[in-house]
Design a protein around this nucleic acid. Structure first.
Length: 555
DNA sequence: GGGTCTTGCGCG
DNA sequence: AAAGCGCGCAAGACCC
């Protein structure tokens, strides 16, 4: 059963539909204050809650102690259906762009006429949000698609991700201020008052001044720093760390140290702690579908860039554990399954990179890794480019798959993941350059067009792998979420629950006594995700797990 | 005084 | 050894 919720001035109306999306009965009107209890009651029938945007409904429910099992996030599903090659002929995909194509849908509003807002410079005519009509339209798009099962699984996984994103923010990532502060004090010195540099940074700056024999050096300004380094006789094109590492000069060591610590201070220092951690929890906004590939984004505090340096401050509550798990070599395994490359599947029975070495394609594990990254990212030069021919000979099917995706992108076509998420098309500027270069191109113009085409090809090449990996991760998490809920009783935060997700890695916060069960569920969910997406294809998705007290202990 | 671009670096 | 994908963020540079 589906229950479609529509917001009204006083609360919501609910309409029920059966599993084939046929309408059941009349509408219920529920006042705002009654909504959590009403949802909780109906939840016993395990419906799929259909709403415009999970972030508009679910936080209130969670705050009221109500957790739901399943939902359809119409906004996220619309975004997928709008561009998917599997539903390109649907009425939804052919309709002009409207409020559902905005980054966040509009609330119901009095009907107005005329241009309401712009979407990528296209004016959009106002239309009231109608979740029921959108639900019907989406149902038709799915039913009429060539492969309803594929796209249906993707939409279910995406919607489950929307629930998880809200739940992770609600639960928060356990964070110990005192541990973090001790770490900062050890590395930087005491917290400075006002605008002065922390003692350790000031000392390094003094060392740098001594090394170049001048006080005219400001490491916080790349432009100034570059000038100062050149004045000191250093031949550098930029102030990037990897370039500075090549040089030997007394200024380099303190400068690199300064950069490292300065980064810690500005990105995850005392200000960060004051701004983003409250009540012992870090609560960023997770953004499902934030990247074109379907990967999540995050806002607030750089949640997806937590440096290894500070992970020790992520500490389980007393009596609880953190179960940290990541999918080993996920993207190359995804490529294996996508392409059906039997030899690569064989190589991936254990450590994939060792397997590639054993196949004779490359000499070392490090080479295998660089070669695989090169294949998935489109390396042309350097180590990756050099290793490509050997990799192509050993695994022709897998390489042919990414090469085909690259060629499609170079032609300006879209590519599609295993479950049906399609890449965006290049913009107007891209096409104009391609056309003008083809028509009356000077040599320089043709070169620019070729470079641009190759660049888009690298994007589509990577898209099918990164996007399908994101689908695997969503299915893994969605399955895990249900399994965790079944492990014990109690409220949401009393049971084992997800507190962090980073592309191919999750953290579960769990009562210590249940940690081993969580590990088991993580493995089962991973195996299930592979079966769901790839069926019988014999590709393994091993995960590594660690049961720890703090995140710094994992890996 | 604001807004946007650039640089550099953190994560996968 | 330093190119080849996807992101977010902070600070300075640069503009009006």
């Amino acid at each position: 059963m589906y229950v479609v919720l529509t917001r009204t001035a006083r609360g919501a109306t609910a309409l029920r539909f059966d599993d084939s999306r046929a309408r059941l009965g009349g509408a219920d009107a529920i006042a705002t204050a009654e909504l959590p209890a009403w949802v909780e009651r109906l939840e016993r029938e395990h419906p799929r809650w259909v709403w415009d945007d999970t972030t508009r409904w679910y936080p209130h429910l969670l705050a009221a102690g109500v957790r739901v099992g399943r939902c359809v996030d119409l906004r996220l599903c619309h975004a997928i259906l709008r561009t998917s090659a599997l539903t390109a002929e649907s009425a939804l995909a052919r309709a002009p762009r409207g409020p559902w194509d905005a980054a966040t849908p509009l609330l119901e509003r009095p009907e107005t006429h005329g241009v309401l807002f712009e979407l990528d410079d296209d004016p959009v005519i106002d239309a009231p949000i109608d979740p029921v009509a959108e639900f019907v339209l989406q149902g038709e798009a799915i039913a009429d698609s060539e492969q309803p099962g594929r796209i249906g699984l993707l939409l279910a996984a995406e919607s489950a991700g929307a629930l998880i994103a809200c739940e992770m923010k609600f639960a928060g990532l356990p964070w110990k201020n005192d541990v973090h502060e001790r770490l900062l004090a050890d590395l930087l010195g005491p917290r400075p008052v006002g605008v002065e540099r922390p003692a350790r940074l000031q000392k390094l700056l003094d060392d740098m001044r001594l090394a170049v024999g001048s006080t005219e050096i400001n490491p916080d300004s790349p432009a100034d720093l570059l000038k100062a380094l050149r004045r000191a006789g250093l031949d550098v094109a930029s102030t990037r760390s990897w370039e500075l590492k090549q040089l030997s000069h007394p200024v380099i060591a303190p400068l690199l140290e300064y950069k490292k610590l300065s980064r810690l201070l500005t990105a995850n220092g005392w200000n960060w702690l004051d701004t983003w951690v409250a009540d012992g929890r870090f609560r960023p906004d997770y953004v499902p579908g934030g990247a074109a590939t379907g990967r999540w984004g995050a806002n607030g505090g750089g949640a997806l860039q937590l440096p290894k340096q500070v992970r020790g401050a992520v500490v389980a509550d007393p009596g609880w554990k953190l179960v940290v798990a990541d999918a080993a070599q996920l993207e190359p395994r995804i490529l294996t399954a996508l392409s059906g490359d039997r030899r690569m599947a064989e190589a991936g029975r254990g450590d994939l990179y060792e397997g590639i070495v054993a196949s004779g394609a490359v000499k070392s594990r490090a080479d295998a890794k660089v070669a695989m990254l090169g294949a998935m990212y489109g390396a042309t030069a350097g180590e990756g480019g050099r290793l490509m021919p050997a990799l192509t000979r050993a695994f022709p099917d897998a390489i042919a798959m990414v090469e085909a995706a690259a060629r499609a992108g170079e032609r300006g076509e879209s590519v599609t993941t295993q479950l049906g998420r399609s890449s965006p098309l290049p913009g107007e500027d891209w096409r104009e350059l391609q056309e003008s270069a083809a028509a009356d191109g000077t040599e320089a113009l043709r070169r620019a067009a070729r470079g641009q085409a190759r660049s888009w090809g690298r994007f589509t090449r990577n898209f099918i792998v990164q996007g399908t990996a994101a689908e695997w991760a969503l299915c893994w998490m969605a399955g895990l979420r249900g399994r965790l809920w079944e492990l014990s009783g109690g409220s949401f935060v009393e049971r084992p629950h997800l507190v962090f997700f980073l592309h191919d890695e999750v953290i579960v916060h769990a009562p210590a006594a249940l940690a081993d069960s969580v590990v088991e569920q993580l493995r089962d969910a991973a195996a299930e995700a592979g079966r769901l997406i790839f069926g019988a294809m014999p590709v393994q998705f091993p995960i590594t797990t660690a049961v720890v007290d703090d995140y710094g202990q994992a890996k």
